[in-house]
């Protein structure tokens, strides 16, 4: 199983290597705009929970990016599946479906980590340094694992690249804005907080932000993220099995 998983992961790494300059540029644009527009310009004199808005925003961007970049592997899988038919090469190879799922999830998580390194570097230039401790990275690992797993499952369910874009517009983008990334969720009405509590990104943002400020996050967030990840990897495995027909 491990060799099959590594073969899939290796392929994704080779593609990333070939596209590295473009990927770095693309991964830098959004966080840079957020930092300039929301953090530097609009949030200049704003304080949130005793921190400058830039300090508040940066961990939120880390959470948001670990989600969007991990999920972006879905587009790559779709392109490989619908346009290049490379998925057939994996299906006809003697590797198990779980190897395929794990290889693609690892690739999604790698993308997420690349984007986070870029954000941390950008943050440094904006004068914000976060406490990158074990709990900070653990929350990122779990969050990227969840959304990479979701991406693999979604990529198998959709019938076209347009369906994938629609899912991103209706699920990923709203979550990116409402999952406690750009503003504190506790400023919303209680009913809205309860809804947002169901989103894994809300827990990831909370844990990443708390850990990055040097405090100990609530362990329940980690348990929720872990269980969500397990659920999504099972779903994605079932979706890959189903994709044979």
């Amino acid at each position: 199983m491990i060799q099959g998983c590594l073969a899939i992961y290796y392929r994704e790494l080779m593609i990333m290597k070939r596209r590295l300059p473009k990927m770095i540029a693309t991964m830098s644009v959004s966080p840079l705009l957020y930092l300039i527009a929301f953090g530097y310009a609009m949030g200049h004199n704003v304080k949130v929970d005793g921190h400058t808005y830039l300090e508040f925003l940066l961990p939120g961007l880390v959470a948001m990016s670990s989600m969007t970049q991990a999920f972006s592997i879905a587009s790559e899988i779709n392109i490989a599946r619908f346009y290049w038919h490379i998925f057939e090469e994996f299906q006809s190879a003697p590797i198990s479906n779980i190897s395929y799922v794990c290889g693609e999830i690892l690739a999604g998580m790698t993308r997420a980590f690349m984007s986070i390194i870029i954000i941390l570097i950008l943050g440094y230039f904006f004068g914000v340094s976060l406490s990158c401790n074990i709990l900070f990275w653990l929350a990122i690992i779990l969050n990227s694992f969840i959304f990479a797993s979701l991406a693999v499952g979604m990529a198998m369910l959709v019938k076209s690249h347009a369906d994938q874009a629609m899912f991103s517009s209706f699920v990923i983008t709203p979550m990116a804005f409402l999952g406690g990334t750009l503003f504190p969720v506790d400023r919303l009405p209680l009913w809205a907080q309860k809804i947002l509590f169901l989103l894994p990104l809300t827990h990831a943002s909370k844990a990443i932000r708390t850990a990055s400020f040097g405090n100990t996050p609530d362990y329940s967030s980690y348990i929720i993220l872990f269980l969500t990840g397990v659920l999504f990897i099972i779903i994605s495995f079932m979706c890959v099995n189903r994709a044979r027909d």
């Binding site: 290049w84 490379i86 190879a93």
Partner: peptide, 19 residues
């Protein structure tokens, strides 16, 4: 169904790894 962005060797190498 070849990876267009990879070289001939890389495409074959990935196949060998899958096996």
């Amino acid at each position: 169904n070849l990876d267009q962005e990879l070289t001939v060797f890389e495409n074959l190498d990935i196949h060998c790894r899958l096996y």
